[in-house]
């Protein structure tokens, strides 16, 4: 076990998987000589050379397509998006192609590819750099969507993602790269599709993922504990496929649910979770599910406006109080 930053944990995963399997290569903007816009690929060019760590010209659609083509003939590309905001330009390759190739080809083709990069707010970067876009990809059959919150999960999930035979959308928290935590050394695999109870509790379930866990939910749960309220914190880690069993088990234990999501409220992951919970656990609920989301507006640059647009500890506690009728 070592204490590593989220960034270094991802770097370790890439390093180990590239050492293990010569079919794995990394391509994206600034990944080679610059060691990545967020330094996730630090040292990889020196170790693996310019054929496997490749600086791409600025065309997200272009290098996503190159990755899809390479995957179809047997390689395992890791395509770094400088941010998921820019990956919107590559959605044709991700959604129309990577997600569908296996199905469209009657199972003849496969697309073992990882599209990875930072999502969510980054600290005064305004509306085109701050979006939490996971719901866009969660919507699409054929894709798996992963969004780890901790360094250990980041490493274990990235290793599993690279080994998976399906296309994976791997969304890192832009503000999480510097966060430190204990990470198992060497072979550490976290299965895709498994949620994790980050804090056990029995009065209310708070479901979340990625940065919301460390920024707001943990603090809210602690404040609630100080007030004598026992909150269970469930970190989904994978958003598609959903770990329905873990979600419903927790709901059946606490009977009250608050979902905390960085993205917008309409047609969101939280909306889907709410649907699942009311269908599968209606009789176990003691209150309607509450959701805390980013406001239904675009992000601002001004610090006070940026903070007001995102979920907060106060809004989470208020939602918990609501489901507890306190």
């Amino acid at each position: 076990m070592s204490e590593l930053s989220y960034r270094d944990a991802l770097n370790q995963a890439l390093n180990e998987e590239m050492s293990r399997d010569a079919n794995v290569f990394l391509m994206g903007e600034e990944v080679a000589r610059y060691n990545g816009a967020y330094k996730v690929s630090q040292g990889l060019l020196d170790k693996f050379g310019s054929a496997r760590v490749v600086d791409a010209p600025i065309s997200e659609l272009g290098f996503a397509g190159l990755g899809v083509g390479a995957a179809m003939v047997g390689l395992r590309p890791v395509i770094e998006m400088m941010t998921w905001n820019f990956a919107i330009l590559a959605m044709d390759q991700i959604v129309n192609n990577a997600a569908k190739l296996r199905h469209m080809s009657g199972g003849q083709l496969r697309c073992p590819i990882v599209f990875r990069g930072p999502g969510g707010a980054g600290g005064r970067l305004s509306s085109q750099h701050s979006q939490a876009l996971e719901a866009h990809y969660v919507h699409c059959p054929g894709l798996k969507v992963v969004a780890p919150a901790t360094p250990a999960d980041a490493k274990g999930l990235l290793k599993s993602a690279i080994r998976d035979d399906n296309p994976i959308v791997f969304i890192e928290g832009e503000l999480l790269y510097g966060v430190k935590g204990d990470v198992p050394d060497g072979e550490h695999l976290v299965p895709i599709g498994k949620a994790d109870i980050k804090r056990p509790g029995d009065q209310v379930t708070i479901i979340t993922w990625s940065r919301m866990l460390l920024w707001y939910v943990n603090e809210a749960a602690q404040k609630l504990a100080d007030q004598g309220i026992s909150a269970e914190v469930l970190d989904l880690r994978t958003l598609r496929p959903l770990d329905e069993e873990a979600i419903l088990t927790s709901v059946r234990k606490t009977n009250r649910v608050v979902i905390v999501e960085e993205g917008w409220p309409l047609a969101s992951v939280g909306a889907t979770l709410t649907d699942l919970i009311q269908r599968e656990a209606f009789d176990d609920l003691d209150a309607p599910v509450q959701r805390v989301t980013g406001l239904d507006i675009n992000m601002s640059y001004a610090a006070n406006l940026e903070a007001a647009t995102q979920p907060s500890v106060e809004r989470i506690i208020a939602a918990v109080n609501q489901v507890l009728y306190r």
Binding site: I58, L89, S127, Q128, H129, Y301, A302
Partner: peptide
């Protein structure tokens, strides 16, 4: 109104639009 990043200004009065951070 505090919404857009620096170096991404827009001023309709001088016929200059906001740059998109997304290249091109």
């Amino acid at each position: 109104k505090g919404r857009q990043m620096p170096s991404h200004q827009a001023a309709a009065s001088v016929h200059q639009v906001s740059w998109s951070s997304v290249i091109g």
